[in-house]
Design a binder for these strands. Structure first.
Lengths: 181, 181
DNA sequence: AGCTTTTCTTGATAAAAGTCAATGCCTAGG
DNA sequence: CCTAGGCATTGACTTTTATCAAGAAAAGCT
């Protein structure tokens, strides 16, 4: 999952036992709006996008998850309600999926796992806060500039209209911004 | 802090020992941009706003924290860098503040505390996600409508220009939207 | 009560971003 | 090799929101 946390062989077994590794091909769904989400998915390789589709059929990308991040719909998870989001692979992707019950059990029983998860949750929360900040404070151009420097390389991996959607812009607007650089 | 979690008297003592209760008067800062934030603050009563000030002197409100929520700057906490946000009381407010070291120790040593915190973190993260969704998907009017139904009563407690700032709008625009309802 | 500061509203105008429509370019699939 | 679908760009035009400026209303202070 991450870094320097050292699991004992027994712990690794326990984690493996609760995990399902799934490989998704480009465009394949991990979650479709309307389904109830009860898992946590860690991206081992590739990239996922979480997005909603509005009344006009426009997509709005809530977030990307690349290597060492996770994708989840806490809203559906905590409420038990069907999700309003889709989670989809933007490229061939490998994820480690844990059912939420198992996930919570692991957190209780394996302190090292809990520690890693805590760090990940706080990191994800921080990223969400920071994103709120850009979304309400920055102009279209500033948002794009920040995106470039915050996620270097990602712009090469995903189509531009998805970047636009992530930034809350139309593809046309982003195209025009890029022309001026 | 919350709900049904049952702490033993000894645990309550331990939590109290690590906590500082602060009362803030309206407009008083809990954190000023430039300072390093190393705590966690739970709102017992009142309301805090977290905001940044941009190059033009405009304020952008990242979030409000009312009863049973918390306010924190994870960015500064995790990075050790000076904060780019201010946290300020919008009304007379009582907060329970825990230094992050003590906070983490409590999480390790008091499982019931850890449980409550986990729930709070996930709830806060969920709210941030949902906010990102509205920020990039909704028009000004839709954002205001959602705000009204999502935080009923809050609009009575804080000045309108702060609501506008929270929604990423100018005070004038919000005023015009309200006229049409 | 009277004064000051903050807050809210309104109008006129400008800027930013969205919409609609057309075109060309790739590239994956048959 | 050819073609269809997805992707990016551009232009003309519209809509939305911001900006600037001025007052009015409300709230806080002494």
């Amino acid at each position: 999952m991450q870094s320097k946390a050292s699991f004992t062989p027994a712990e690794i077994e326990q984690i493996k036992a609760a995990s399902v590794v799934r490989t998704l091909r480009k465009r394949q769904y991990l979650l479709q709006a309307g389904d109830v989400w009860q898992s946590n998915a860690f991206v081992a390789s590739g990239c996922l996008r979480t997005y909603s589709v509005d009344a006009k059929g426009l997509e709005h990308i809530i977030g990307f998850a690349v290597e060492n991040w996770w994708a989840t719909d806490q809203e559906s998870l905590l409420s038990g309600q069907p999700s309003r989001y889709n989670i989809e692979a933007t490229e061939d992707t490998t994820v480690v999926v844990l059912k939420n019950d198992d996930f919570e059990q692991l957190r209780r029983e394996v302190p090292a796992f809990d520690k890693v998860v805590n760090a990940l949750v706080l990191r994800t929360f921080m990223a969400a806060q920071s994103r709120v900040h850009s979304a309400i404070s920055y102009s279209a151009e500033e948002k794009y500039r920040e995106f470039l420097q915050k996620y270097p390389g990602l712009v090469q991996r995903i189509p531009q209209h998805m970047v636009a959607s992530y930034l809350g812009l139309t593809a046309e607007t982003l195209s025009r911004i890029r022309r001026q650089l």
